[in-house]
């Protein structure tokens, strides 16, 4: 009897130990990144490496703002933010059509999903040529449109699932009660999928925020986004690690906050709806 309890305690302790080691291993690189961003150049280039900075100082961040490089975070915010809003709006409407009217049947839905699977490298080149012709290279409109298109399949696919979860009866009841199709959408469907909308929007934002290939090809000087800015420090002057780390932290913090806000929907979001979690 007591030995059973003791065994269970030992087992739990063992699992805690394992869980701590595993988690520490996975979190350590992030710890290192954040610590590096607070280090002085001397501390960064110390050998053997310093496990934590002597003091928390924001000089590395200050440099980014003084140089004006921090504008990259703003650029990312604008492109990711606006493209997310557009993709959410158009994608949710399209998803409603697919979910409720089975428009285009399964074939259309699968085609849309397959658009998501397309390699960016295959379309970035012709898009680049198109944008050169339109004068959209290094412009917000070009990148926003591209991110919108890039995220639409995801939004449609996810929202199709969330809308499918809304009982049809509610919409029918609203119709009988006197609503037009649009009113049904606004007054019944949208409020009921609100959390799904929110979760999907966060993922859409994160995808656009982290995107690299399109940004690399389609930005020059005006709207450089933060991942591109990070890579621009490679091979630079001696303090480049300070800038890389600081810029990375600036670009990573918003994501951590966003993801922390929607833990509950994380699994459904990253598994593209395969797990309702």
């Amino acid at each position: 009897m007591t030995s059973a309890i003791a065994r269970r305690r030992a087992r739990l302790a063992l699992r805690y130990a394992a869980a701590t080691i595993v988690t520490a291993t996975f979190v350590f690189p992030i710890y290192w990144l954040f610590m590096t961003s607070f280090k002085t150049p001397e501390e960064i280039f110390a050998s053997p490496p310093q496990w934590y900075p002597g003091s928390i100082q924001f000089q590395n961040f200050n440099v980014l703002f003084l140089d004006g490089d921090a504008i990259a975070v703003w650029n990312s915010l604008v492109t990711a933010g606006i493209s997310t809003v557009i993709a959410m709006f158009l994608g949710t409407l399209a998803a409603y059509s697919l979910a409720r009217f089975k428009t285009g049947g399964d074939n259309l839905a699968v085609w849309i999903l397959s658009q998501r699977m397309m390699p960016p490298i295959a379309i970035v080149f012709p898009v680049f040529l198109l944008y050169v012709w339109l004068g959209w290279v290094d412009s917000f409109i070009g990148l926003i449109l591209l991110y919108t298109a890039f995220n639409l399949p995801y939004v449609i696919w996810m929202m199709r699932g969330y809308i499918g979860d809304v009982p049809l009866e509610l919409e029918e009841s609203a119709q009988v009660d006197g609503c037009t199709r649009w009113q049904v959408l606004l007054k019944v469907v949208f409020p009921l999928v609100r959390s799904g909308l929110f979760a999907t929007a966060v993922f859409t934002f994160v995808f656009a925020w982290n995107e690299f290939i399109f940004a690399l090809v389609l930005t020059r000087t005006e709207i450089v986004t933060y991942p591109v800015q990070v890579t621009r420090y490679f091979g630079g002057q001696s303090n480049f690690w300070a800038k890389i780390a600081a810029m990375s932290v600036l670009g990573t913090l918003p994501i951590f906050i966003a993801v922390a806000m929607m833990q509950r929907y994380l699994v459904r979001g990253i598994s593209m709806g395969a797990v309702k979690g």
Binding site: N210, F212, P227, V230, S248, T252, F256, V259
Partner: peptide
């Protein structure tokens, strides 16, 4: 780790 940019 999964949510940060692969570039970072």
């Amino acid at each position: 780790p999964t949510v940060i940019s692969p570039i970072v």
